[in-house]
Design a protein around this nucleic acid. Structure first.
Lengths: 130, 130
DNA sequence: CGGTATCCCACATGATACTG
DNA sequence: CAGTATCATGTGGGATACCG
């Protein structure tokens, strides 16, 4: 495929599972990417944050239809730990917390757009490929 | 983010779950893409096929460390149904089957490379974003 | 207001055996 | 050789209650 550059080719081709260490000496970056943005809610959260952020926790929850506290909270924590989301807490009473995206998400956006376009194009002329 | 074009922006922003129908009239293409390439083994299978294909079932299984018949078989079926994998059967005895990728995967490759590069860059200068 | 703590379950994945 | 059938299991995610 998938991979044309030397380093990425080696890493993606020879990573046999998501925990493997590649010959290039690091974890397959594509696996890493999928872990960061994977799961049921993370892309929706990023979209909502990018469009409506900075936004408070409960307002964000309203924007995302069907999400539970468990998932919103844990997803935000992971995204923050991975550097995609910034959490700002104002120590007033009652406490006020605002979430927003970091610059990393600005870089991610165009890539995800291409991915979405790829899926659209594919389903449109699927037979052409076969 | 994530989305800058009008249609994709609407669809991604307002898709509240992976089964929702967007105001644009179709399912969010990004969700579709994630369903197609998601799961534990599909990207590894595509990588192996792209590099070593056309390749026979059991040879492919050897290339992918730890995969079971159940998962390889079911993943290949889904990938074929989605138009990413071609299955060619030779009716000799014993039967010979060869798997390869379609042109859709050629288009997907560069996008995934960017995604991998994004993850590498991010982890390299994570602090710069925060 | 902005979460955690528990408990629970469906489903994705795994193990093993078997077959056209 | 290229799978399928069957049963087992682990985990991602959901429901509900509660807390600083």
């Amino acid at each position: 495929m998938i991979i044309e550059d030397n380093d990425l080719k080696r890493s993606a081709a020879e990573c046999n599972n998501k925990n493997s260490i590649c010959p290039c000496g690091e974890k397959c970056p594509l696996s890493t990417a999928m872990e960061i943005i994977g799961g049921k809610w993370k892309l929706q959260i990023l979209c909502a944050l990018q469009i409506d952020g900075p936004i408070r926790y409960n307002d964000l929850k309203q924007k995302i239809n069907g999400i539970t506290n468990t998932m919103l909270s844990s997803s935000l924590k992971k995204l923050e730990a991975d550097g995609l989301v910034r959490r700002k807490q104002y120590n007033v009473m009652p406490v006020r917390v605002e979430y927003s995206t970091t610059a990393a998400v600005d870089d991610l956006g165009p890539i995800l757009m291409q991915l979405g376009k790829w899926a659209s194009d594919m389903s449109r002329n699927k037979q052409a490929f076969e």
